[in-house]
């Protein structure tokens, strides 16, 4: 999760530096979207891992 968040922050920074004024004004929404996707993806993966661990423990 932390690595994903750092990548999202770095992408936002690059967008703000490389893009123009218009890009700078949407960088916050882009960061928010990336972090929200990251939360769902990371937790979904954690769920899959937990399910796999439970299946192997039952065997």
């Amino acid at each position: 999760m932390a690595i994903g968040a750092l990548i999202a922050l770095a992408i936002s920074w690059l967008l703000a530096v490389a893009g123009g004024d218009r890009t700078q004004q949407i960088v916050g929404w882009a960061l928010l979207a990336m972090v929200l996707v990251l939360i769902v993806a990371n937790l979904y993966r954690a769920g899959l891992v937990a399910r796999a661990r439970m299946s192997s423990a039952r065997r």
Binding site: L9, W13, A16, Q24, Q25, V27, G28, L31, L32, V35
Partner: peptide, 16 residues
């Protein structure tokens, strides 16, 4: 998280 996103974007020059 919300304050983090808000301030980081402000630091990059965005006006919310």
């Amino acid at each position: 998280c919300s304050f983090g996103v808000f301030w980081f974007a402000e630091a990059l020059g965005m006006t919310w």
